[in-house]
Design a protein around this nucleic acid. Structure first.
Lengths: 206, 206
DNA sequence: TATATATATCCCCCAAAGGGTGTATCTTTT
DNA sequence: AAAAGATACACCCTTTGGGGGATATATATA
């Protein structure tokens, strides 16, 4: 039986070492390499494609989401498992939308990592319990969806622009910007700018 | 020669495994245990004090800064090295202020980790190059120091309270809160609430 | 096609934010 | 003991924010 080949991309050396150790006495899994940034990863897999890539979502040169997308487009046979310390739905969501087959948190234990690799290598999906819960909760919460304009204006508010400044920048009337800002706050059920910025940062909208 | 005993506190299992692997063939270093949260750490060292603790700054139950402070007060002979993925001055700063002897980023390689442990065990200080640079830059930037009141009010602003609400909560007049908010913004050279909240979040003041 | 949603515009109104300047008391540092 | 900073308060005034409600048009989507 052929071993499952695995590649790791993570900018934290300790994490790479940790996973290497955890996987070293698994007979059906072989770690064929690792990289600490997106470009090294792409360079490596050009020559040799692993069955599964364990991929950090935050890397110095490129986000895991982007890298995941690119890898999946170029090598559809390579499955990706997202790795993250943050149990945030936007990350999980975005990774899955961009072709990831699974998602693990960095506090996962050996059994979970091995199970995830084995499932994903078969073409199935694996979400850690915590990640699955987060996705489920989000689906139930019916998270308010902001329109392009609302998102755009939220970003500009977070950049410190006032409504008149935003109006000028977007060639809109002050009234329009005002309305968008208000419906933004109505949708999110938020009552002032301070909380609006916190919401935006906590939900990775900016 | 006695081995240097080391303990790890980090809520990411992979990081613990990574460090364990990196240290396992160092003859003068012995890993005597690990914990994934602050309370387990305190429970462990009650019975057996290591020479050095490698301590994550972010943990589920308590911040590394607090844990560091407590450990150093109770066991002055135990030296602490902060571990973090974030190269943020406030963390480095606060850890050092609270008795840490060193600071490592999680992308540190084996040589750096070993060097840090050896230096710190001698009672010396070890900062990773990146951390040292950050501290140096900050020292040169003359980072504005906020007073207790200003910090308190900043936190309440970030919690979404308006000036009148803050005044009521702190039993102050509106004018006073107003003045504090203004001097807060003067010191930080910030012109509106949106940027104030971003500043506070990015500098881990809230 | 009908209906819903996104987008853009206007109005009123008042509360809150923010810029300036001044003063008094207390505490900390020199 | 003097200087410096923190804290608390006041008054000025203008801009911005935020709570309503209304209207029109384009563009999706049922």
């Amino acid at each position: 039986m052929k071993k499952i080949t695995v590649f790791i991309v993570d900018d934290h050396y300790m994490v790479i070492e940790g996973i290497r150790t955890l996987l070293q006495d698994e007979k059906d899994i072989e770690l064929i390499g690792h990289a600490s940034n997106a470009n090294s990863c792409l360079a490596f897999i050009k020559n040799k494609q692993p069955d599964v890539i364990l991929m950090d979502i935050s890397m110095p040169d490129k986000s895991g989401v982007e890298l995941c997308k690119e890898v999946r487009e170029m090598y559809p046979a390579v499955f990706v498992i997202g790795l993250s310390t943050f149990n945030q739905f936007t990350y999980i969501d975005k990774m899955m939308e961009n072709g990831a087959s699974g998602y693990l948190l960095k506090n996962a234990d050996k059994e979970e990592i091995v199970a995830a690799i084995q499932e994903v290598a078969k073409g199935k999906t694996y979400l850690s319990d915590e990640a699955a819960n987060t996705l489920k909760n989000v689906a139930h919460e019916a998270s308010p969806v902001l329109t392009r304009r609302e998102n755009e204006i939220l970003r500009l508010i977070a950049d410190g622009l006032t409504n008149p400044a935003i109006a000028e920048k977007l060639f809109l009337s002050l009234s329009t910007v005002d309305t968008h800002r208000k419906s933004l706050m109505r949708k999110l059920n938020i009552k002032n700018t301070a909380l609006l910025i916190r919401y935006a940062i906590e939900h990775k909208l900016i």
